[in-house]
């Protein structure tokens, strides 16, 4: 009994700690400016207003225009980065998980070694390179850099998953004369589906959160995602807390949905990913 009571008490504190910051932003986002700027402490919106959210999404003004644009940028950049990363990582992961070839160990170590290399370590020369290629301020610039930043961990995840599967079925198919592509399409892809799913979720979440990369490679160019927009917005409309928190809430909805929906896949991906270091 004592154990149960302490579990409940600790649990209430933990759940409050985890959810209070999100709850509070929701409260601010749903409140009127009158309440937010008043001197009375408040803990829930009264009255509830959806004005901030509708201003952002349907409002016929420059704020709404740039918000919708940046929301599209976020989705587009995270989506494209995820597709490119997962395809490239699946190919490489398959090679490293299935073949022993000359140099495979070295190449694998080179790719995996860069997992622990933070982006800021190379961001300056990367910026110079991208500037020479005229890719600063473009979607391609942001997507290429984000893909290269997530590729090592994605390759590790895919290789771990692929090498945990038995090889016999593919070998049998290849020896029986099935072409390589047929083997991949009919046998390998269905088998590694779950691995691809968890890698996709992890990569998407990483990319959606990126800030330093788009801040460097797409500053005020129209290609910046929500994370950069949030910081620009906070300096421009410094006191409009209602709008700011509405943007924050909208920016955390996609990752929150992924976490709630796919928590099992995500957890297995995270645990495989965390053990690399």
């Amino acid at each position: 009994m004592r154990k149960r009571i302490s579990l409940v008490i600790v649990g209430v504190i933990i759940v409050l700690w985890c959810l209070a910051p999100i709850y509070w932003a929701l409260v601010v986002g749903l409140s009127t400016p009158y309440q937010i700027n008043g001197s009375q402490p408040f803990f829930f919106p009264h009255p509830v207003t959806f004005q901030n959210f509708s201003d952002l999404i349907f409002g016929n003004n420059s704020v709404s225009g740039s918000f919708l644009r940046m929301a599209f940028n976020s989705i587009f950049e995270a989506g494209m980065t995820t597709i490119i990363t997962v395809v490239v990582a699946t190919m490489a992961g398959y090679a490293f998980g299935r073949y022993k070839f000359k140099g495979s160990r070295l190449l694998f170590l080179v790719i995996i070694g860069t997992i622990s290399l933070p982006v800021y370590a190379i961001i300056v020369p990367l910026f110079q390179l991208m500037a020479q290629l005229n890719l600063v301020g473009t979607y391609s610039g942001v997507i290429l850099v984000e893909a290269s930043a997530t590729l090592p961990i994605a390759t590790w995840l895919m290789r771990s998953y692929i090498s945990s599967l038995p090889q016999a079925i593919e070998e049998a198919a290849l020896i029986d004369g099935a072409s390589f592509l047929t083997t991949i399409r009919k046998i390998v892809l269905p088998l590694i589906g779950p691995g691809i799913a968890s890698t996709t979720i992890v990569v998407f979440l990483f990319t959606w959160s990126q800030f330093l990369i788009p801040l460097t490679f797409a500053p005020s160019s129209g290609a910046e995602p929500l994370t950069v927009f949030i910081t620009q917005f906070a300096t421009k409309y410094a006191v409009d807390y209602g709008l700011q928190s509405a943007i924050g809430i909208l920016a955390l909805i996609p990752p929150a949905i992924l976490v709630v929906w796919f928590n099992r896949r995500l957890l297995s991906g995270l645990l495989t990913g965390a053990t690399t270091s």
Binding site: V15, C18, P21, I22, W24, S209, Q210, A234, L258, V260
Partner: peptide
């Protein structure tokens, strides 16, 4: 587990904002 992992998925910038 889902409640606990939720803050991890919130982007760093949004965490700062919250």
């Amino acid at each position: 587990l889902t409640v606990v992992i939720l803050p991890w998925a919130v982007p760093g910038v949004v965490t700062g904002l919250l």
